[in-house]
Design a protein around this nucleic acid. Structure first.
Length: 799
RNA sequence: GCCGCUGUGGUGAAAUUGGUAUACACGUAAGUUUUAGGAACUUAUGGAGCAAUCCGUGGGGGUUCAAGUCCCUCCAGCGGCACCA
């Protein structure tokens, strides 16, 4: 049969077996395989999806055949800008666009024979789903982890819309390329920084690959140090002292000036009240300039430091000297306190600044790294001095040891239509009040126009019936929040909902989570190792702290695996503009799904970057054709008995393939199948029924259509519910082993011996010494040493 | 600059605890068959040499009977972060 008929036939049959891929709560040993769910775009599945999902599918099928109760679910992360824009452009409802796209995705995924349990499908745009996304937000608010704040956001003046950081590429709007500016908008912010330490420490409880752990740790960017207060020398301002963060409190004696960022609160007070007119103008100009600079310019101009003297002084708390306060944009308002103590002797940036503006430089370490010029700490090492310094500032009440993080709080508001409404109500009497739980979900109203508004407000703000509501607390007239949530909100916790997708009273049942959690393997792309994975872990930790989850499950994902990237045939990233896009559906049309799947897995190591190569694909196709023909031949002339040689080949293959599949070594697993078939075919063996079945089973996870087609003959039901073959230990070692014989580490000869002999060192060495070749080589030579590695090698060290 | 990763044939890549380097596949060459089509099959294929043999895992050094694998150092490439105090 043609592959197309085979595919059609089995798709139909599988559909008629609803139990085949079903994950059943509480039945046996569970295994949870998770692939990142897709954003259902209009262009359908791309090769990256096919690659990553096939990998997950093989793993799920493999574990299922090994007798585990596998959950392998799929859903859609469907809120977001692309759908909204497409809907606006084509004058459709985003709801309808989503429906169309998800239906298309589903059909394509079925064709790829992905063994998802569709009973557990979730969709982030489904009100029954986002009810719980909103519920999580309310919990965050109740615990003080969500607050509203005026914050500068990225504003695209052309699209007239606020952009998320990830929507800004090189300072420009991702969609239209217009330079992004800053705008202050009142926004919901989530305090992820409260969990910074937990997000680092929790990694210890996981088996993420090291690279992923590192990326997360770097992203959080923890620095240990101290906060220190410097008193201002004047008392003309509300602000009486400057607080700084430093990782080097031990260099306090070398702090000869201070620098504050142009956005610092002290600067605005200065501009208003400064008594020296000329200085005031300089400051105003400088602050104005800094504001105009985009983030990009600020970093591009990083090489050349600029600044202006504030006219103010602070007191160094240990030297009691007056030190000048400068204003410069090399100090970031968003990190630490927006103010630093400058130690030009021991910080490159401070030195650069000091040299440019002729500020004093006082070293506090000598060439042996011992403290100098620091009275009470002189002679100490850096480590000791830091300890002493922290104790000292605490004792004197001028500061304390503390940590700082790169991680910032999470801006949670989007001024778009196509997202989860934030379930908050602004009451003139009560302030911000969360919607009552029984009123959830706050459903996104279907409206005529989705276009963003001129003033940067969500289109929802124009819908009076949505905006006007009553306060859940006092019952008075109030206004609903019209911002929606970011994409991440729905994808933070979807893996929990798969476990219990139809629960109306809870996000997820405790006992069900206890059974299914944590996710055993999470397969995803490197691009999600920071934001998505971090946000998701944060939300899990937060819900865990609410006592909703079992104590023994402090982390949501046990293992994280990064899939690789597939480049176009030209070794470039696939993109429409390069014209190098490979569409998986077209490949499947041409060669069949099994060929596509196996080729994707054979291309290279699972996490590698690989270029599409049609020739290699042909090689895989050849193999699959050869495999099919071979099995059909074997089935026609079944052997009643088979040699140990055959048993050894097959059992070694079983052991090797099982091990490789378990470690995502798909490329080598396939190579082992090829090697096995090469060996069997070159010797013209006939196989027994059981061995034929085993071979088909080994192929089943990778080539599900062909495998079921070949297995149909036996009338035992689908191969995908069969038991994975076990390697028989006695066939894993051959009767005869080859031992290499080397002289001075160079292999010169080999001997064959019965495997029962491998531990008889004396005899083996004697044998090795007395082969024709070795006799020659060792004649008249003095053997200094004889080394025998059982079953592998004999090495003679001679003079 | 900092952190992480990777350097193996013409190409994609394999190599338990250090123990036959280049499995598997592509490409190439010769042959078989003659197929209307992306062909199929067989054999060969790291380099040098007639050969014995020698040389070969980015460069240099080291540990070891033995190094692709461990240590030091340098070089190149990839990814992430980046004026983070």
């Amino acid at each position: 049969m043609e592959f197309k008929e085979i595919e059609k036939k089995w798709q139909k049959k599988w559909r008629e077996m609803p139990e085949l891929y079903k994950a059943k709560d509480f039945e046996g040993n569970k295994f949870y395989v998770l692939n990142e769910f897709p954003y259902p775009s209009g262009s359908g599945l791309h090769v990256g999806h096919a690659f990553s999902y096939t990998a997950g599918d093989i793993y799920a099928r493999f574990k299922r055949m090994q007798g585990l109760n596998v959950m392998f679910p799929m859903g859609y992360d469907a809120f977001g800008l692309p759908t909204e824009n497409h809907a606006i452009k084509t004058k459709q409802k985003p709801q309808d666009v989503t429906k169309k796209n998800t239906a298309n995705y589903r059909a394509e995924m079925d064709r790829l024979a992905l063994s998802f349990d569709w009973c557990r499908e979730v969709n982030t745009t489904d009100p029954d789903y986002y009810k719980w996304t909103q519920w999580i937000f309310i919990k965050l608010f109740e615990k003080g982890l969500a607050y509203k704040q005026e914050m500068p956001i990225n504003w695209c003046p052309s699209c007239k819309i606020g952009l998320a950081n990830e929507e800004v590429v090189n300072g420009k709007c991702e969609r239209c390329g217009t330079e992004v500016s800053r705008r202050n908008i009142s926004q919901w912010v989530v305090k992820i920084t409260d969990y910074a330490d937990r997000l680092i420490d929790g990694l210890k409880d996981t088996h993420f690959i090291e690279r992923v752990k590192q990326v997360q740790i770097n992203w959080i960017g923890k620095s240990e140090g101290a906060k220190i207060n410097f008193k201002l020398q004047t008392s003309n301002f509300n602000i009486k002292e400057l607080e700084v963060f430093t990782t080097r409190p031990d260099t306090l004696y070398g702090a000869t000036f201070m620098v504050i960022s142009p956005e610092h609160a002290l600067v605005s007070q200065l501009v208003e009240t400064h008594d020296r007119a000329s200085l005031q103008k300089d400051i105003k100009d400088y602050v104005e300039q800094a504001r105009k600079k985009s983030d990009m310019e600020r970093t591009e101009l990083a090489k050349d430091k600029t600044g202006v003297f504030s006219g103010l002084y602070a007191i160094n708390p240990v030297t009691n000297k007056e030190i000048p306060i400068w204003i410069s944009d090399f100090v970031l308002a968003s990190y630490g306190t927006g103010a630093i103590m400058s130690v030009p002797a021991h910080d490159e940036r401070d030195r650069e600044f000091a040299e440019k503006y002729n500020l004093p430089i006082v070293p506090v370490y000598d060439e042996n790294n011992k403290v100098i010029n620091s009275e009470m700490w002189n002679g100490l090492s850096q480590e000791e001095a830091i300890k002493k310094a922290i104790l000292y500032i605490k004792e004197k009440g001028i500061g304390e040891g503390t940590n700082n993080y790169h991680l910032r709080d999470w801006i949670f508001s989007r001024q778009h239509y196509w997202g989860e409404p934030i379930p908050m109500v602004n009451c003139p009497v009560c302030g911000w009040v969360p919607e009552k739980e029984e009123n959830l979900p706050i459903v996104l109203p279907e409206v005529e126009a989705y276009e963003p508004t001129d003033d940067g407000q969500s289109p929802l703000s124009k819908i009076e019936s949505f905006v006007n509501c009553t306060c859940p607390k006092c019952g008075g007239a109030a206004k609903r929040e019209t911002d929606t949530m970011p994409n991440w909100a729905g994808s933070d916790w979807y893996f929990l909902r798969y476990m219990d997708p139809h629960n109306n009273s809870k996000l997820v049942d405790f006992d069900i989570l206890k059974y299914w959690g944590p996710v055993d393997v999470y397969i995803g792309g490197d691009e999600h190792n920071t934001l998505h994975l971090l946000y998701s872990r944060f939300i899990y930790l937060f819900l865990y702290d609410l006592g909703l989850f079992p104590k023994e499950q402090p982390e949501p994902y046990d293992m994280r695996v990064s899939h690789g990237v597939i480049l176009g045939p030209d070794n470039q990233r696939m993109s429409k503009s390069h014209g190098n896009v490979i569409v998986p559906g077209e490949v499947a049309d041409k060669y069949g799904v099994d060929v596509l799947r196996m080729y994707l897995m054979f291309m290279g190591p699972f996490d590698g970057t690989m270029a599409w190569n049609e020739k290699t694909l042909m090689g895989v196709k050849r193999f699959i054709d050869r495999f099919e023909k071979a099995i059909v031949d074997y089935q026609l002339k079944v052997a009643s008995d088979s040699s140990d040689d055959v048993k050894v080949i097959i059992n070694k293959t079983i052991a090797g393939v099982s091990k490789d599949l378990n470690e995502f070594g798909y490329n080598t697993a396939i190579a082992k199948m090829m090697e096995c078939m090469n060996k069997l075919q070159s010797s013209n063996f006939n196989l027994q029924i059981n061995d034929i079945k085993k071979l088909i089973k080994l192929m089943a996870p990778m080539a599900p259509y062909l495998a079921d087609e070949l297995f149909e003959k036996y009338n035992e039901g689908s191969i995908h519910s069969q038991k994975w073959p076990e390697a028989e230990e006695k066939y894993l070692t051959e009767d005869e082993v080859t031992v290499m014989v080397a002289v001075n580490g160079k292999v010169r000869d080999q001997i064959k011996l019965q495997s029962s002999m491998i531990n008889l060192q004396k005899e083996v060495v004697e044998m090795a010494k007395n082969t024709e070749k070795m006799k020659d080589l060792l004649a008249n030579k003095e053997i200094i040493k004889e080394i025998y590695v059982p079953g592998k090698m004999v090495n003679f060290v001679i003079k």
